[in-house]
């Protein structure tokens, strides 16, 4: 913001006195060539500006290229990660199915039987009374050692 007035004043102040001076003091043919000589410093001043623009264009181009490459690379990475997600989802699904099948009552009963376990009989219950004493209710019966029906219901 503070630099703005300085830039505005620059082109007006320097060339104008030069031009008026040459026209007034040397009105011959040779002096006519003077204005062309005067423009030389102008070109010199424009050079860094042109360089700046070229630099911006160059940097911009390179940045665009890098960005484009990065985006393309990311899209490849995205694809492979998506595929990985798919694979893992399928794997999770298969494992979950395995768990669900194994925890089905029929599968549990089968597995328990294979381990030599037998269905429990009627349990007895210990009732704890408020005064801390306990009372046995029901009749705990030992499980009958007989093979449970092998047939699937």
């Amino acid at each position: 913001m503070t630099a703005l007035p300085a830039i505005e004043s620059w082109p007006r102040r320097t060339p104008t006195p030069t031009r008026t001076r040459s026209r007034r003091r040397e009105p011959d043919r040779v002096s006519l060539r003077r204005p062309t000589a005067v423009t030389a410093p102008d070109e010199a001043r424009r050079a860094p500006f042109v360089a700046l623009i070229l630099l911006i264009v160059g940097v911009g181009l390179v940045a665009l290229l890098v960005l484009n490459t990065a985006i393309a690379a990311d899209s490849f990475a995205e694809r492979s990660l998506t595929q990985q997600i798919e694979q893992l989802t399928i794997q999770e699904q298969e494992l979950q199915q395995e768990v669900n099948r194994a925890q089905a009552p029929a599968a549990l009963a089968r597995a328990a039987t294979e381990q030599g376990m037998i269905p429990a009989g009627t349990p007895g219950f210990l009732v704890v009374k408020p005064d801390g004493s306990t009372q046995v209710v029901g009749r705990a019966t030992p499980a009958a050692r007989q093979p449970p029906p092998a047939r699937t219901p």
């Binding site: 089905a104 009552p105 029929a106 009963a109 449970p148 029906p149 047939r151 699937t152 219901p153």
Partner: peptide
Amino acid sequence: QDMQFQLERAIAAAND
């Protein structure tokens, strides 16, 4: 599900 399984096992045995 556990009671359901026991029920089905009991009625399958009766059905035999």
